[in-house]
Write a protein that binds this DNA or RNA. Structure first.
Lengths: 355, 355
DNA sequence: GTTCTTGATGTAACCGGTTACATGATCCAG
DNA sequence: CTGGATCATGTAACCGGTTACATCAAGAAC
């Protein structure tokens, strides 16, 4: 026996399909007695509405789509979590689609969203946003997250990577480091590029040089960079990795090589994934509260779908979370006082909530 | 201007909608010359098919749904990653829905899937599977992952938690531990219950006692359990936490309290999330290769959708990954030789691929 | 040359909802 | 008692695809 439809209910309840639809959707113009009867019949028949049919006729799906470049590590799981939370609070559902770095696949993913979602959150730090957005289904509301700044005039959410990276580097310098190394993210990635620039800017202002090693945002590349430094016997006293995973990879290699962190070398990352607090020494990072960032994107999208979004660009300035990996040395407790630097005190369990 | 439809293309190309549909779907019975013309027109009009309409008429959506209980931590992101990989290899898309532990919401999520997906992967270790499955849309193929064993006769994937937990405890005993503590998972959770039972069984066989502390699979509860032990001044030399996150929480507290791991206390977890290798000391765990587990679930689901699935239960036996947190002591290198125990050698970067 | 087969194409129904509009009943004012 | 407003309900079109079936032309077989 196939699934029950509104017509089945109509027949069974001896009313028309229109009345069934109105009753089940809570329209006011249905007699209470009729509504109850219809609801009872629907329950008895095990009726569950067919989302595609409803979507087709009402042009609403109650679903928002999320396009992400990757699915590795905690960054995306946190982002997803924040988005899902916000969406479900508004009675919406999330579907996620991965465009594995590939522009071809990105276009396919965008196309596949047509007829499935009411709007899109697109995160595409790799490919050119403008190039991708040409393929956005016509009239599909979208919020861009961490995309290359385009002239699309679309709603955008962005992390102030330059400010965050500068603040981290200034923190390193303030704690006495002078021989800085930056492990960069993948070339062409907007976040990576901006973080590099922020680091360079801060170094230039302080009049010190910065060595840059390549990386790809994944942990092994951070490890490889550190291994290179050690093999070379390079002189360095601080590493700023363009994200947390690379910082962790680097830290592991240093520790195995007997380099003391932070006594000999300070290390910091970027993103402030939950993991930063779980490793030892805990990792200094630039915090953007990923989950809340994702929630924000969804909130903006909901406004855009409703038609009342200003279409502006929202920029988040990260906060530096100072932890053990660059922690103040014992004999100099307050050697830094930058505006957006937050000194996190380890509590007993070491799991402090971020402000 | 609204989106182009097949009828627009038909008009523009001076053919019928049936021909347009056939041409764009690669049916053989279309003249090559006509097909090319139609494709050209479709491209010119920026045609993108409407998924809901296609789904409605063809009863296929090309989408599989994933229902998970939660979205915290690396376990689910790994699972998602594996599923997504497998699905996209088969030209399918994944949508994920979170039922926040709540049975009410679980039912809503299941209903919301009707008319959206061709099949479901349901992971519901908390609620009674049978109770939930009553609300599965009629005729919807589904694969159950880590659900309480039901008599549903459905396709199920399951982790052999008892065997995994037993193997871990046997490993602890073999390395000389005698005062064991188990940090349990949430009560009513099938995985947690089975892991507890596996630990108890192994202890009973060895004739030693097992202290059990409550937990909830989240990291703070592991920390709290360890704190309790320390405050009490309890005598113990090994902790087996029901999952990795709690093990990590416990380890952090022990280290802060000056307890040496593994010299004084050995610690192991369960799940083998990527993080186990990144902390120090690296964490011994029972590995089920989460991503591949997820991929397997999708593969089974695809078979079920095609109609040729045996409907059997597939059980995965975890492998014990021995790492530093329970590592062999220096003076007794091979004090264990259980069948499914795998001794992981740390390589230079510390990021060995699992077999 | 006629009939049969084959293959390309068109017509229209259908999937399962929603909703504009029509209908008819009820109620109230005049 | 009657005309108009109000409200519940029914009829049927529509959303945008797919596809069974009908049609028709061209080539093959006799």
């Amino acid at each position: 026996m196939p699934h029950a439809t509104v017509r089945d209910i109509a027949r069974e309840a001896a009313v028309s399909v229109a009345t069934v639809s109105r009753a089940l959707n809570g329209h006011s113009n249905v007699r209470a007695e009729v509504r109850e009867h219809i609801e009872a019949v629907a329950l008895r028949l095990g009726y569950v509405p067919h989302a595609a049919a409803r979507h087709l006729s009402s042009a609403k799906s109650g679903m928002i789509g999320v396009v992400v470049p990757d699915l590795h590590g905690e960054f995306f799981s946190e982002l997803l979590r924040g988005m899902d939370r916000e969406a479900s609070e508004r009675g919406l559902y999330c579907m996620m689609m991965v465009m594995h770095g590939d522009a071809q696949r990105g276009v396919a993913a965008l196309h596949a969203m047509r007829g499935r979602v009411d709007g899109l959150v697109v995160m595409a730090p790799q490919v050119s946003a403008d190039e991708l957005l040409v393929h956005l289904p016509r009239g599909m509301p979208a919020v861009l997250v961490n995309c290359a700044p385009g002239q699309s005039g679309r709603t955008e959410l962005r992390i102030d990577n330059v400010a965050g990276a500068s603040a981290l580097v200034e923190h390193l310098i303030a704690t006495g480091r002078r021989q800085l190394v930056h492990i960069a993210g993948p070339v062409g990635n907007i976040d990576a590029d901006e973080r590099l620039r922020g680091a360079q800017d801060a170094c230039a202002r302080a009049g010190i040089s910065l060595r840059v090693l390549p990386g790809d945002f994944k942990e092994p590349s951070g490890a490889a960079a550190a291994a290179t430094l050690i093999e070379e016997g390079a002189a360095f006293d601080a590493i700023f990795a363009a994200n947390d995973m690379m910082a962790i990879g680097a830290m592991m290699v240093l520790k195995r090589a007997g380099v003391a962190v932070p006594d000999q070398v300070a290390i910091c990352g970027f993103d402030d994934i939950p993991l930063t607090r779980l490793i030892s020494p805990s990792l200094t990072s630039a915090s953007i509260d990923i989950a809340s960032f994702g929630a924000s994107a969804v909130a903006r999208l909901v406004k855009a779908i409703a038609g009342d979004d200003d279409g502006g660009v929202e920029q988040r300035v990260p906060i530096v979370m100072v932890r053990e990996s660059t922690g103040p040395r014992l004999h100099a407790s307050t050697d830094h006082n930058f505006s957006n630097v937050h000194n996190e005190k380890p509590d007993k369990s070491g799991i402090g909530e971020l402000p």
